[in-house]
Design a binder for these strands. Structure first.
Lengths: 172, 172
DNA sequence: TAATTACATATGAAGATACATATAATTTCT
DNA sequence: AGAAATTATATGTATCTTCATATGTAATTA
């Protein structure tokens, strides 16, 4: 990411090369249209850049993104079932199962059968898990502070509201 | 994702279990604070849900998300170098190299040495690549249409502007 | 209540990604 | 110009994710 950043601003958003070859006929999807304003693509890039940036902080403490997000969800809402974690983390069930394996191996969470339903597994942070969360969260928040630089509360409230509407539309 | 959707609305955002254990002392990061309004987390969930939804459409045509996004970037801006593609797709260099391998194997792109710099590789869509793009794009746009249901142009312009500011802050 | 279906989680195998490093082409420095 | 540093891309290896399916538990039905 570092080397790439240096050259970034030099890249034209729509190359003459591509535009020449991909001219759209009327009624057809434009091949040479810029992607930058397409919201899903913008959202994706933001999310992945944030992930990329955070990863460098996570690496020294042997933490991966999937594990970190899972830890965060548990920090906000301990004792969730696997299924609930799947929904909250947006990690696939099979992957989540192994994410929890790893967190458990590292002593950060424990699995316990739900008292009422013997097929439901609930996941709990351990003391070490809570400690790890408290240790990493500030690093994440530092990134966030940079991301919202120059944006005031009204902007953020607005952005949050719009994103929630977006989310409600796709989450089903 | 389907089974999970059914139970989703029943999940309380902050569990009493977690809240009880993770009470924050003054000046400390809240352990039991809801994650839902934390923007990076919201962005991540949106991005991943979109990805998850799209993947089911991509699967039948043997297309993966990384390959699709790369194809999209090339459709918007053909003949980019590997490095430029890394920036635009936010896929890591090593991963992108193999993504291009695959696309090339499938006959959707070709690699060509840049005429002036013998170490930069430029990537071009083939006819088949353009066809594939035109075939998949409508599916993606259908998802998008659903995502922005109920949002008017002003909302979208606003959202886009805010996200661009966010992006500019983190992209370096 | 035995059989059937649905649900929650786990696991094997294949494929994809990440990290470190290799290779090769330029550029910079002295 | 020659040596050292930089840049662009590729590749080996370990780890992670995905897809398909297995396993065990609970709910439904005949």
């Amino acid at each position: 990411m570092n080397e790439q950043a240096r050259q970034k601003k030099a890249i034209p958003e729509t190359g003459a090369i591509g535009a020449a070859e991909g001219e759209a006929r009327p009624g057809e999807l434009a091949l040479g249209a810029p992607l930058d304003d397409y919201l899903p693509y913008l959202l994706f890039r933001i999310s992945n850049r944030l992930a990329l940036n955070l990863r460098s902080d996570l690496r020294p403490m042997k933490m991966t993104l999937a594990r970190w997000r899972t830890l965060s969800v548990l920090a906000a809402s301990n004792g969730r079932s696997m299924g609930e974690l799947v929904d909250h983390t947006v990690i696939e069930q099979a992957a989540l199962s192994r994410v929890i394996d790893q967190l458990q191996r590292d002593g950060l969470v424990t699995r316990r059968l739900a008292s009422d339903h013997n097929r439901v597994v609930r996941v709990f942070l351990t003391r070490a898990g809570r400690l790890m969360f408290r240790q990493i969260r500030p690093l994440e928040l530092a990134h966030y502070a940079q991301a919202i630089e120059g944006m005031d509360t009204a902007d953020l409230v607005q952005l949050s509201a719009l994103l929630h509407r977006f989310w409600d539309n796709i989450d089903r």
